[in-house]
């Protein structure tokens, strides 16, 4: 008798690296095109057409990369920790590979959020860096990414490396709500959240619409960059299989 199927069929098909490789090949051109379109529109809109802030002037335009990169750094961390958990629970190789692919992209986004924050802080607060709760918790996020990457580089692509990295990222998850609520819990320098799901934005439409375009563009950028890394990782780990040999001979 066949075993009862608990999860939907597509979930089981993800266990096949070959199937996943085919998905990356199908999705990549679309994601790359959408990323390019959204980011081009967003950047031109942000730099040329969005109105300047009545207090901050044009330095306010830094928000159009600061907020998307900060959002992405946290979303990528969630993706990394959740796929790490899936890898541990279901022993799914592709989930480990997704977690592995996420780490450097997430680290680079945390870096961009911190550096643009510092550049924005100078004309606005008069200082490149303050030990504000939001800034400090974002710095910890960057170090968590570094920790995960260091584990991978020390232990290679083994199953135990994936396990150790997944456990570290799951423990580090506690930092995500701290980042989110830091602006409410500690009343220091950083301003409260720009976007919330429940309230209307405090900015006029001409200001937040380009921001929305940039945020979407950054998410599609992440999908593109992650699939590119995932594709390499699948090839490397499956190099002994006949389908990879076939594929390499065709390229």
């Amino acid at each position: 008798m066949a075993k009862k199927q608990i999860m939907p069929l597509w979930f089981y098909r993800l266990a096949s690296p070959k199937y996943c490789y085919q998905i990356t090949a199908t999705l990549l051109p679309y994601f790359a095109a959408i990323t390019l379109a959204l980011l081009s529109i967003g950047i031109v809109w942000a730099l040329l057409f969005a109105p300047q802030d009545y207090q901050q002037g044009n330095s306010f335009r830094i928000i159009y990369i600061h907020v998307p990169s900060a959002l992405l750094a946290q979303s990528i961390y969630l993706t990394m920790a959740l796929s790490g958990a899936i890898g541990i629970i279901w022993k799914m190789k592709i989930a480990d590979m997704v977690a592995y692919a996420c780490a450097p992209i997430g680290a680079s986004m945390a870096f961009v959020a911190l550096i643009t924050g510092a550049i924005w802080g100078k004309p606005t607060w008069g200082s490149w860096w303050v030990w504000d709760a939001r800034l400090t918790s974002m710095l910890i996020l960057l170090f968590l990414y570094f920790g995960v990457m260091a584990l991978y580089s020390a232990m290679g692509n083994s199953a135990s490396a994936a396990r150790a990295a997944a456990i570290l990222s799951l423990v580090g998850l506690v930092n995500i709500p701290i980042i989110k609520y830091s602006v409410d819990w500690w009343n220091t320098l950083h301003q409260p959240a720009t976007f919330t799901l429940t309230e209307k934005p405090a900015m006029p439409v001409e200001m937040w619409l380009p921001l929305l375009v940039m945020v979407l563009g950054f998410y599609f950028f992440f999908a593109t960059a992650m699939l590119l890394r995932l594709r390499n990782e699948i090839l490397l780990r499956e190099k002994r299989t006949s389908w990879v040999k076939q594929l390499v001979s065709e390229l």
Binding site: G57, N58, S59, I62, I65, S108, M109, V112, I119, W120
Partner: peptide, 28 residues
């Protein structure tokens, strides 16, 4: 000039674009 904030704005956008590009070009 960006109303005197040119350095800050262009530096931020430049760094961000560079990092985005590296994330695409390096896996390619």
């Amino acid at each position: 000039n960006m109303g005197g904030h040119g350095l800050y704005v262009w530096l931020s956008f430049g760094i961000a674009l560079l990092v985005l590009m590296l994330n695409i070009v390096s896996p390619l």
